[in-house]
Computed example of a mutant assay.
Amino acid sequence: MHWTIGLLALAGGMAAASGAFAQQTDCKNPQTQMEMTSCEQDRYDTADKALNEQWKKTRAQTADVDTNLEEKDRGAEKALLTAQRAWISYRDAECQAEGFQARGGSMEPMLVAGCLANLTDKRTKELKELSDALGN
């Protein structure tokens, strides 16, 4: 029991230190591997939020397209959902593969996070272009 409480306290302390560390990191000029990894993770977190916002808009538009079609012609929202699920599988596998450039090393998490950020930014742009083409 004491062991579990000690582990939880250690994890909480590490999380607090990590949060403080992230606030102090200058991502325009990171100096350590830990800072570089933190910056790439922050970049991915930002990209993921933007993707989720765009996803909601684009999915709503495809649902709207479906409502304006005859039953036999519907499927825009389902096609988008299928594509997004396939893209997520691709993104995760691609970035895992990129991480193998430094497998087991301190650079691996940075490479994976950077890949996730890049591919997520690209997908957000693709969803925005689809949204623009749908005209809503």
Rank of each mutant, 00 (worst) to 15 (best):
K56P: 02
L134R: 11
S18A: 15
L10F: 15
W3S: 11
F21S: 03
Y90N: 07
Q24H: 12
S18W: 15
C39E: 07
D66Y: 10
K56S: 14
A117G: 07
D48G: 01
R43Y: 01
C115A: 11
R85W: 06
A11C: 07
E70L: 11
I5S: 07
D45N: 15
A20E: 15
N136F: 15
A16N: 01
E98N: 12
A86T: 08
C115T: 05
K128L: 08
E126Y: 08
T32G: 11
S89Y: 10
L51G: 02
L80K: 00
N136H: 14
N52G: 05
E126A: 14
N52K: 09
R59K: 15
T62C: 06
L80S: 01
G12V: 09
A50L: 06
E53Y: 01
G114Q: 11
T62A: 09
K78Y: 03
Q41R: 09
A11V: 11
Q84A: 06
A22H: 02
K28I: 02
N68G: 15
G19S: 09
N29H: 08
D26R: 09
G75V: 05
N136M: 14
M110T: 07
G99M: 05
T58S: 04
R59L: 15
W87V: 03
D73V: 01
D45K: 14
M107I: 02
F100K: 07
A83G: 10
Q54G: 00
Q31C: 03
R85I: 10
D66A: 08
D121W: 02
